[in-house]
């Protein structure tokens, strides 16, 4: 059976709808970078092994390199370009800037998108592999440095900025908790 291998899709990115023809092989990552000129989302490995391409899909973090664009139709896509409030940086962005939570900056958009989701996942009571007791009776784990490290481990940083990344996530989580 011959299948159509391309189609016209509508992607909702940062609240805006974009209609574009795509080869079904096009990943969401390539659609963002090559077709929509949203190059803040980075390609580090293209195989789901580094996290540089992390975006939010329906509010949850995901690696856009393993997400086919055609399969992202109908979902709310948020990229690094869409997380700030106009000129006002998202608290996570501000913390990365202030605490030098990066060096070359290439993994940074993915780290920031991931961190935004980590703070929400934690607020929702999700346990992690660093949580000593995952049973609901144990209550939600505090967002310790070890919890942040584990939850942020899907975002590799080759420059070795993890120490300040953890501090930035903690500071942003505190700021949001206080807000």
């Amino acid at each position: 059976m011959a299948h159509s291998t391309a189609g016209v899709i509508t992607l909702t990115v940062n609240g805006e709808k974009h209609t574009l023809p795509v080869d079904h092989r096009t990943t969401l990552l390539d659609a963002l970078r090559e077709r929509l000129d949203l190059t803040g989302t980075k390609k580090g490995c293209d195989l789901g092994q580094c996290g540089a391409c992390t975006v939010l899909l329906d509010g949850r973090r995901a690696v856009s390199c393993l997400q086919l664009a055609v399969a992202a139709e109908g979902r709310e896509i948020t990229t690094i370009e869409g997380v700030s409030d106009g000129e006002r940086l998202h608290p996570v962005q501000q913390a990365f800037l202030d605490l030098d939570g990066y060096q070359c900056g290439y993994c940074t958009p993915g780290q920031i998108c991931s961190a935004i989701a980590v703070i929400e996942e934690h607020a929702a009571g999700w346990p992690s592999a660093a949580t000593a007791d995952v049973r609901p009776e144990a209550g939600p784990p505090p967002l310790t440095a070890d919890e942040i490290r584990e939850r942020m481990s899907g975002n590799l940083c080759r420059c070795g900025a993890y120490v300040s990344i953890v501090q930035a996530v903690a500071q942003a989580a505190d700021a949001e908790g206080a807000a």
């Binding site: 949203l38 190059t39 803040g40 940086l89 800037l97 990066y102 900056g105 290439y106 920031i112």
Partner: peptide, 21 residues
């Protein structure tokens, strides 16, 4: 001092070699 290009890096505005249309 925070990085001169820091804002561009945390907002995704900084363009790397493969990203110039």
């Amino acid at each position: 001092h925070t990085r001169v290009e820091g804002r561009a890096k945390v907002t995704g505005a900084a363009r790397y070699a493969g990203e110039i249309p």
